[in-house]
């Protein structure tokens, strides 16, 4: 079995899958956390893969925010209501409780102020769903610890000076941040290298063997 395409580490649209059957495993997991018929805002929605998936499979009222012109154009052409904008600056203009879920899929590490973004997500939405790559995965540790280099792997394919990812964190770091802002974790799913959901285990095990994490947070 070949490893899943985990191209979402790069938030630019070109690397996003465009067809539903290509939907990344973490997108499916995110989608499954969303209740039918709810109102959803996807931050950094790229070409709208997740929004389409949500609209088609969960019957949600799906909205998006996307930085790139190319991504917005693709979304609008698919009939998805998407606003060109920046999660770091534009969330403040959204009213409280406007959405049931605000989703940040593979974008946390690319925002300038992750804490502000997360707090805004939980203000605008009753729940937040965040998926991100775990920077404490053993392969990353190996690159950094043994080779002494910033990791360039399948899931982190861009060299340190080119990457838009500026705020990497580990699963433990994320749990700490959630705790700091007073958010409750309702669900957490961790994927291994093959994109399989890991069974419940010690957080240390997740943090070492989990390559991706998806968390459902509540205020």
């Amino acid at each position: 079995m070949s490893p899943p395409r985990l191209s979402g580490l790069d938030p630019t649209v070109e690397r996003r899958p465009t067809r539903r059957e290509d939907a990344r495993n973490d997108l499916r997991l995110v989608a499954e956390m969303v209740e039918h018929g709810s109102r959803v805002l996807d931050l950094g929605c790229g070409d709208g893969s997740l929004l389409s998936l949500l609209a088609d499979t969960r019957g949600v009222d799906a909205r998006g925010l996307e930085l790139s012109q190319g991504g917005v154009n693709l979304c609008v052409a698919r009939g998805l209501p998407v606003i060109q904008g920046d999660a770091d600056t534009d969330l403040a203009t959204y009213p409280d409780d406007a959405f049931d879920y605000v989703i940040l899929s593979q974008t946390l590490q690319a925002v300038r102020r992750p804490r502000d973004v997360l707090e805004n997500m939980l203000r605008i939405g009753r729940r937040a769903i965040v998926s991100f790559p775990n920077f404490a995965h053993w392969r990353v540790r190996l690159e950094l610890g043994l080779r002494g280099r910033m990791p360039v792997t399948e899931t982190l394919p861009i060299s340190w000076h080119e990457t838009p990812n500026i705020h990497f964190c580990s699963i433990r770091d994320f749990l700490d941040l959630a705790d700091e802002i007073g958010a409750t974790i309702e669900r957490g799913l961790v994927l291994d290298r093959r994109g399989r959901v890991m069974k419940d285990g010690a957080p240390a095990r997740w943090n070492l063997f989990g390559e991706q994490a998806v968390f459902l947070l509540k205020r």
Binding site: R63, Q69, V72, C75, P81, I83, Q84, G85, Y94, P95
Partner: peptide
């Protein structure tokens, strides 16, 4: 953007592009 923010606040279905 002011229009978009108002539409958002009103819960409208809105797309927005700034064209280069």
């Amino acid at each position: 953007r002011a229009v978009v923010h108002a539409l958002n606040a009103g819960g409208a279905s809105v797309s927005f592009v700034e064209i280069e």
